[in-house]
């Protein structure tokens, strides 16, 4: 039996009637056509499906859409500000932290969740934050550098630069 759910996706309220066996990942991609969130393993291992649910990064392939009822979801599409890329997105482009791009949405959302709580992370904090996001292309170093660069930009150039 279908259920009506209401959630906020990238700041916009949405209401949908969905079957309970559909994951948040499926509903984002198929019903809301937000295909920036990727479907990799479907089992929690790869992190390609990472979205931010009420402020915390989760694997959307292991969350039922009905479990997101009444909650707030942020996907990669919700990051740009006034048509401009988010500083983390810019840093990924500038540092060459993207090759095929399949892991990138998840990486950036894990990075955003980190920087929201910890604006000046250490390298270990960064590596821990993206430890559930697999990348088969870049070897991670450039991703770590991009997140470091973004944290510096976002914290502002003046003052306590390290």
């Amino acid at each position: 039996m279908k259920r009506i759910i209401q959630m906020t996706v990238n700041g916009e309220p949405v209401e949908l009637a969905i079957e309970p066996n559909r994951t948040l990942l499926q509903v984002l991609r198929e019903d809301l056509e937000l295909t920036g969130t990727k479907h990799g393993c479907g089992l929690g291992d790869c992190g390609a499906c990472t979205v931010i649910l009420d402020g915390a990064p989760v694997n959307s392939c292991l969350v039922l859409a009905v479990q997101a009822n009444g909650r707030e979801v942020l996907t990669i599409e919700g990051l740009e500000e006034n048509g401009d890329l988010h500083p983390i997105q810019k840093a990924f482009v500038e540092k060459g932290a993207i090759q095929c791009g399949f892991c990138t949405s998840g990486m950036i959302l894990s990075a955003k969740a980190l920087l929201d709580h910890n604006p000046r992370p250490s390298e270990i904090d960064i590596r821990t934050a993206i430890s559930g996001n697999l990348c088969r292309c870049t070897g991670y170093q450039k991703i770590v550098e991009a997140i470091q660069a973004a944290s510096e930009t976002m914290a502002g150039s003046g003052g306590d630069a390290r």
């Binding site: 990064p57 821990t128 934050a129």
Partner: peptide
């Protein structure tokens, strides 16, 4: 336990 996303759930 797991990675950050797993620990959140």
């Amino acid at each position: 336990l797991g990675a950050p996303m797993i620990r959140n759930r």
